[in-house]
Amino acid sequence: CFCFKKNAKTAKLVLFLASETAFTVNEVEALYELFKKLSSSIINDGFIHKEEFQLALFQNSSMQNLFADRVFDLFDVKRNGVIEFGEFVRSLSIFHPEAPIEDKIAFVFRLYDLQQTGYIECEEVKKMVLALLNESDLSLSDEAVESIVNKTMMDADAKGDGKIDEAEWKEFVAKHPSLIKNMTLPYLKDITMAFPSFVLNSEVQD
């Protein structure tokens, strides 16, 4: 018995998303509640805008952050400037504890491939380190930043061509699994626990 209270189109989408992601129907419904909250925080139009994404992440809608921009861009698969519900669920599915690790590794590779050239280049690594330092209380001299970037490139760039390709990235992550720690959100395994009020109202049984 599927008694989702929204319209038939949304109900169909929920079933479809559950069939092609790591989430159950109940969990996709819980994500719909989260999506509704996020997508109506500034502009109530059924899409998550960049400002709404920033507000949810930083409690500040005008907070600029290179990495949040990259995550937003990857979630916005259609590249139309907003995150739709399907994009939200499919992207979050990669963060599910039971999602394939290869998908998590590939997502981070795309995230760090700032120019989308198919490689993480030395200059991109430096740009990201500087962005991280800029947003945090960490302080490093220019020499120290160069040293960290150069050492990392030496470790990760097995072919020594000055850029990290996807195969090199996979090997590097295998040696340093903590690099994809952010890619697993324990909440997602118990998403219905995170929204108990919703579960009480749900008539769906998986």
């Binding site: 921009d69 963060f95 991280l132 945090s136 490093l140 960290i148 050492k151």
Partner: peptide, 26 residues
Amino acid sequence: VAPVTMNAFELISKSQGLNLSSLFEK
């Protein structure tokens, strides 16, 4: 001060912008 022996990607992964758990905070 960050140790200079740190892996650049370890540093990068500490960005608040990559911490999506904030999306679930009520």
